[in-house]
Design a protein around this nucleic acid. Structure first.
Length: 682
DNA sequence: GATCCTCGAGTTCC
DNA sequence: CTCGAGGATC
């Protein structure tokens, strides 16, 4: 019996592997689904009966298994680098890259064009597949590039990933880099099923892929079917590499790895631009999402010559498509009142899916902006996610304005209200200012609420648990009107509020009590004085050392402070002259004991006098932690990059600051290098 | 007076 | 992140 089973196993596995390859890689199925299922179940049954015959590369390993507690870290043999993004759009991006390569390679005008390998930039999750002697032994995520997570069992559920290379003479070690992604069809199917079963649908295919790979239970991962495309290599041993990148991909395909068919080899910059155009036209018709294309110098010897800069290959670039735009309708224009009383119009949009998320709101900034774009209620507008994050109304589509031909338009041009929508007080717009403001000051409930939210916020007094919903209730019930009132709150007073049982009430009281002693700088920032932000509050605290000294200062004394001029000085004097503010400060004095600092110069340290800027997400440190470390070493963590910036610390998904740093030739550090720099402190 | 460098303020979505 | 504007600098 066992002999028969053994004899049957091998051809069975080959049949199933072959069917998988044809279905998932070649996209040309040969076996009917029912037949495939029958063969698969037969194999499962045989392996269950004779566990000793189960092989690590059996197709049955693609489903099920035990859930994990956590993923094990994997140190990449060769770092998984990111690829830089070309900053120019359209043809200029392609030509710019070609120009840069010609310059770097010292090519003259008469030299032949450079050969490039062009590929799609898949919108998924980068994965490293490690094959030893032709068998898949490990799959890992990119992580921070140095260390990723072992997701072998989840990647095994991806049918497109061969568990064994289709060759009798595989390299001793072959690491394949590629992207795990979810097709639009798989995404739709999964969401349809989720909706049926009342589950939460996925937001977009990209999140689907990332979420799927990070499922600890491989069975859950298998339910969200992923695909894979290979695009590069990691460590290799026992393989004489071909001369070009495209030949490497050809070989990978021959070994049974999925390589996308839209790749091309082209000569010169104009051909890169052609490729970019061609893919842009095909983009909507593809089975999966892409966010651009990738250009790589094809010859490996030239790649080596070009080398790396700031841990990114100089010989490759991602050329993205501009932020996707969508049409939607402005259903209403709401007006928000901010902490300073500024009235901000916000377009309430018919929900629209753009750039991977559903957008329902977009700021219209101010009256001038509305007039410039002539946005009216009922208009159809083009919405874009600027910088891929914040939704923005690009323009109105005038042809779609309802009843635009009426003598008296249905919807007149929008005008901001002249009375505050929250308190009814008059609205005033000062000459030369973009914002119109409610004149009611803290008597306006909206401003009072915003002032309290600001007071409690993380960078100010850091009162955990006191968010906008709670402030809303406290103010509406008349329990709290000024920051000082917070410190008089009792558990009994909180009892009647929504979502406020005994436990959370006690937590809140404790959080408020814990904020009684904060450094002077935080306290000053928390007061919400106009034109005094976090940085200025720090400068003031350092200069004066105590609130009394600051309140006693006249204009001449104030403008002595770094970065304080007549405008900021006037804001401070006006704030402290206001009787209401003085009363609140006196009440706070009675309730809390913030720490007066000592008037002291900036601390010495390794970073004394240096300015750093942070961008992107660092692998282990949070932004605030990194900032605190820099400041503790005497450095300044600036919010933007300029010629005066000494270092830029870049993490994952770094944005325009990194590009600017490159353009200015500023030293770029990663987290490890920053920590190294900080350690140099003696 | 012009220009550059920063900071402040407001905003969106998960 | 972006825009606007305050402050510094040339």
């Amino acid at each position: 019996m066992k002999r028969e089973a053994e004899a049957r196993l091998h051809p069975l596995r080959r049949l199933i592997d072959d069917a998988n390859h044809r279905y998932y890689v070649l996209d040309a199925p040969t076996l009917p689904d029912a037949e495939y299922d029958r063969l698969f179940r037969e194999l499962q049954a045989l392996e269950a009966e004779y566990p000793e015959l189960a092989a690590p590369d059996s197709p049955t390993r693609r489903v099920g298994g035990q859930a994990l507690d956590a993923f094990a870290p994997v140190r990449h043999a060769v770092p998984m680098l990111s690829i830089r993004t070309e900053t120019h759009f359209e043809d200029a991006g392609a030509l710019n890259f070609d120009l840069r390569m010609r310059k770097e390679l010292a090519q003259g005008a008469d030299d032949p064009p450079i050969e490039y390998a062009c590929e799609l930039k898949f919108d998924g999750l980068a994965i490293n597949l490690r094959y030893e002697h032709g068998v898949l032994v490990q799959a890992a995520t990119r992580g921070d590039g140095e260390t990723g997570e072992d997701v072998t069992r989840n990647v095994c559920t991806i049918r497109a990933v061969p568990l064994r290379l289709a060759t009798d003479a595989p390299p001793a070690i072959l690491e394949v880099r590629g992207e795990a992604y979810m097709t639009r069809a798989a995404f739709e199917r999964y969401n349809a099923r989720q909706r049926e079963q009342g589950g939460t649908p996925l937001v977009n295919p990209r999140n689907g892929a990332a979420g799927s790979i990070r499922q600890l239970d491989p069975a859950l991962c298998a339910r969200r079917p992923l695909s894979f495309y290979a695009y590069g290599l990691g460590e290799t041993q026992g393989w004489a590499l071909p001369a070009t990148h495209s030949a490497i991909l050809d070989q990978l395909a021959a070994w049974g790895l999925p390589v996308n068919a839209e790749r091309a080899v082209v000569q010169g910059g104009a051909a890169l631009a052609d490729y970019h155009h061609r893919i842009a036209e095909k983009r909507d018709g593809l089975a999966f999402d892409i966010d651009g294309v990738v250009y790589k110098v094809n010859r490996l010897d030239l790649q080596r010559q070009l080398g790396f800069v700031a841990r990114e290959p100089r010989w490759a670039v991602a050329h993205k498509y501009p932020a996707q735009e969508e049409l939607t309708v402005v259903e209403a224009i709401a007006v928000q009142v901010g902490r300073t009383g500024a009235l901000t119009p916000v377009a309430r949009l018919k929900p629209v899916f753009v750039g991977g998320v559903t957008v329902t709101n977009a700021t219209l900034h101010n009256q001038d902006e509305i007039e410039r774009k002539d946005v009216r209620v009922g208009d159809t507008v083009i919405v874009r996610r600027a910088g891929d994050v914040i939704p923005e109304v690009v323009s109105v589509v005038p042809e779609r304005r309802p009843m635009k031909d009426l003598v008296e338009p249905l919807h007149p041009p929008y005008v901001l209200p002249t009375a505050c929508p929250e308190c009814g007080a008059p609205v005033l717009r000062l000459e030369g200012e973009a914002a119109a403001r409610c004149t009611n000051g803290l008597a306006c409930p909206a401003q009072r609420k915003q002032a309290l939210i600001h007071f409690a916020s993380r960078r100010a007094m850091d009162i955990e648990g006191l968010g906008d919903k709670l402030v809303e209730q406290l103010v509406d019930k008349g329990l709290v009107a000024t920051p000082a009132d917070l410190y008089a709150l009792t558990q009994a007073a909180l009892a009647g509020l929504e979502r406020m049982a005994e436990k959370s009430a006690a937590n809140l009281i404790a959080a408020i009590a814990a904020s009684r002693a904060r450094p002077l700088a935080r306290y000053l920032f928390a007061l919400g004085i106009r034109n005094v932000g976090e940085q200025t509050a720090k400068d003031l605290a350092r200069h004066f050392g105590s609130l009394d000294a600051l309140m006693a200062a006249d204009e001449a004394a104030l403008i002595q402070v770094e970065d304080v001029g007549p405008v900021v000085a006037a804001s401070l004097l006006a704030f402290f002259a206001e009787p209401h503010n003085r009363a609140v400060i006196e009440a706070l004095r009675a309730a809390c004991a913030w720490e007066d600092g000592v008037a002291a110069p900036r601390r010495a340290g390794v970073l004394a006098g240096r300015t750093l800027a942070l961008t992107g997400a660092l692998p282990t440190l949070s932004r605030d932690q990194a900032k605190a470390l820099i400041e503790a070493a005497g450095g300044k963590a600036a919010s933007s990059v300029s010629k005066k910036t000494d270092y830029v610390v870049a993490g994952a998904d770094a944005g325009t600051k990194l590009e600017k740093a490159r353009a200015l030739g500023i030293t770029i550090l990663d987290e490890a290098e920053l920590l190294q720099l900080l350690k140099g402190e003696s």
